[in-house]
Design a protein around this nucleic acid. Structure first.
Length: 660
DNA sequence: AAAAAAC
């Protein structure tokens, strides 16, 4: 039946109900005219004068909403964000928890120092609130739109949400572990939990609690030792190869030729063998003379050798492979003019779409300077444009594995002419889930084609690829360039779980760019809400957002319009944003390599930066081990909201500074 | 177990 026909039987569609239509018209009339199009000449154009002002929330209303939420009244959310509402229904416990904690208020009042600052902040935050209010509301609406409009998202929700609520409420890890690995353990656990009513008691009185906790520690340790089951469960974990801390070992470093930074002095890109146009473009990109890793790898790439390159985060790896790759293509262009539909001759693979995009932003101008074309091939966006570019003919394909394989299967992308392939973040591309697609793609490229593997954490994990695809590779690294020799100040803060949000808020409430990492997409969302409720503008970046929103939110940080980005590990590798001065790890990273990559988002190209990791007490040991593997020295301190060290890390003057 | 990556 055509859509515009009135249904034959049953209740008529509302639009065909004269009463309904009349009622709606009356409502519309009362509301006044709708806002029309803003561009003159458009059919629905309305001049600004006759366009009614939209209802915007001001700072006071916003604060009221936050207060309502705090009191467990979800009315505002229900109107605004249906999705959230459903989420909360799954977790009635939270209402209870929140209502049950007036303590917060109390604690805050109890500290005059905090109060002073809070007053200052409040003024500033209100300010900020109104400044952002205009952008804010539509943004939220957008978000709701995204949710509704995207089926994938739903499927994610249905799989993930329930589990999330379970985790949050009932201490995920432990339960999980015990049920999985040791059923006997479980009974014991439950006993333990029942055995801790004193915690409840302590919760009422802050200062005592601190005291108590400190005393409590030895006892805890004793507890642990006296629980053989627990040990067993760890032993079992160890037996599971992929999930254990043991998995996080430092793989053997590849035998590498180390270039000394001093060897590079006075060397120019031309000296390394790059042509005039390319050198000029590099200069325009801000690369006047080569960084060490570039000086080390460029000659070998130009010589056609397979290359493994390790240079720490922010050391200029993109140019290290991008520039010589273009030079190579230009050299052996022989015969192949820029004909329509010519097959690509070079391929650059990256683990995330944002990284692929970013690489293209560097490589494209270099390629254009010598008349070569690049195109991005990645998912999450319509493929038509990408296919169109391929039809016209491109020389360099830059993208992520999924869409590249997709287009190969559709017969729209032919890699058989690819003579140079680059894997950026190569060790990550060898992780489970990435390795096989990458192998399949590389097998499509020209046999014996040149392969270049780059990463800040290049280790023997890439052996699978090296053995199959590389011939006598040259391995390069820069002498003395381990991460710790860099410009980054590392800190670890041990905090109580119930202080975490407050602490993160205080850390993130600053004027310079801040990147916050979480372990899950759900927590990234949650944290953005928590920060916004506390008056700190923040946006999220994770794989559950539409690609448009991902790019928009990243751009908001890049442009500095928003100072805080909360991201999953999708942003851990390769992403370059100028002047991120603080990286906050709201969750501890999984492995030392992740630690290195996350912290590498700051302190780039020799600039100063700071990394702070917030952990609960029981992660302290694992954290210490991870730092050892990463070869990083970081002080580990107990911290509570309002402590001086928090201000110091955030870069605010401490009380001591103010009074001196 | 999570994250990323295709429609």
């Amino acid at each position: 039946m055509p859509k515009n026909k009135k249904p034959a039987g049953g209740r008529p569609a509302r639009n065909f109900d004269p009463d309904y239509v009349a009622k709606r018209r009356a409502q519309q009339a009362k509301k006044g005219p709708k806002p029309g199009s803003r561009s003159p000449g458009h059919r629905g154009y309305r001049s600004p004068e006759e366009t009614p002002k939209k209802n915007r929330w001001d700072a006071a209303e916003r604060a009221e909403r936050a207060e309502q939420r705090r009191q467990g009244d979800r009315r505002f959310d229900r109107d605004d964000r249906p999705q959230r509402e459903r989420f909360d229904e799954d977790r009635p416990k939270r209402h209870y928890e929140r209502d049950d904690r007036p303590r917060r208020q109390f604690a805050r009042d109890d500290r005059p120092r905090r109060d002073d600052r809070a007053r200052d902040d409040r003024a500033r935050r209100d300010d900020r609130g109104s400044r952002f209010a205009r952008d804010d509301r539509p943004g939220r609406d957008d978000r709701r739109f995204d949710r509704d409009a995207r089926p994938q998202r739903r499927s994610f929700d249905s799989d993930d949400r329930p589990r999330r609520s379970f985790e949050r409420d009932s201490r995920p890890r432990r339960d999980d572990r015990s049920t999985r690995f040791n059923s006997d353990d479980r009974a014991q656990r439950r006993y333990e939990r029942d055995d801790r009513p004193r915690r409840q008691f302590d919760r009422d009185e802050r200062p005592q609690r601190r005291q108590f906790d400190r005393d409590d520690r030895p006892q805890r340790r004793f507890d642990r030792d006296s629980r053989p089951q627990r040990r067993d469960s760890f032993a079992n974990r160890d037996a599971k190869p992929r999930f254990t801390p043991q998995d996080d070992v430092v793989l053997e470093r590849l035998e590498a030729d180390a270039i000394q930074a001093s060897d590079v002095e006075g060397v120019s890109f031309s000296d390394l063998g790059l042509g005039g146009n390319i050198v000029r473009t590099l200069g325009e990109l801000g690369a006047a003379s080569p960084f060490p890793i570039q000086a080390a790898t460029i000659p070998d790439v130009l010589a056609g050798k397979d290359v493994l390159g390790r240079g720490r985060t922010g050391s200029g790896k993109t140019i290290a492979f991008g520039a010589p790759l273009v030079e190579r293509l230009m050299e052996n262009k022989g015969g192949t003019k820029r004909e329509m539909g010519r097959k690509p001759r070079a391929l650059i693979l990256a683990p995330t779409r944002e990284l692929a995009l970013q690489i293209d932003r560097t490589v494209q101008p270099i390629a254009r300077s010598v008349g070569l074309f690049t195109t991005q091939i990645y998912g999450g966006v319509p493929q038509a444009r990408q296919v169109g570019a391929l039809k016209r003919g491109v020389d360099i394909v830059i993208g992520t594995p999924g869409r590249i394989e997709d287009l190969i299967e559709q017969g729209r992308l032919d890699l058989s002419d690819v003579k140079v392939s680059v894997l950026d973040e190569a060790d990550h591309m060898c992780d489970l889930g990435f390795l096989e697609p990458v192998q399949r793609i590389l097998r499509q490229t020209a046999p014996k084609g040149q392969k270049l593997l780059f990463s800040a954490t290049l280790d023997t994990g890439v052996a699978a690829l090296v053995n199959e695809f590389l011939v006598d590779p040259a391995v390069h690294e820069v002498a003395g360039e381990d991460q710790d020799s860099g410009t980054i100040d590392h800190r670890v803060l041990v905090a109580l779980r119930e202080d975490k949000v407050q602490l993160l808020t205080e850390l993130a409430d600053r004027d310079e760019k801040t990147l916050v990492f979480t372990r899950t997409r759900a927590y990234a969302e949650q944290l953005v809400d928590d920060l916004e409720d506390a008056g700190v503008r923040a946006v999220a970046l994770h794989g559950d957002l539409s690609q448009g929103r991902r790019q928009r939110n990243l751009e908001r940080l890049t442009s500095g319009r928003v100072k805080v980005l909360v991201a999953t590990d999708v942003a851990a590798r390769g992403i370059h944003v100028d002047d991120i001065t603080l990286v906050i790890q709201a969750d501890m990273p999984d492995e030392y390599k992740t630690y290195l990559h996350r912290s590498g988002r700051t302190g780039r190209a020799g600039k100063a930066g700071r990394v702070v990791t917030v952990i609960p007490r029981n992660r302290r040991r694992r954290m210490t081990e991870m730092l050892e593997r990463a070869e990083i020295d970081a002080p580990i301190v107990d911290v509570f909201p309002g402590d001086d060290v928090v201000d110091e890390i955030a870069g605010r003057p401490t009380i001591a500074d103010l009074t001196s």
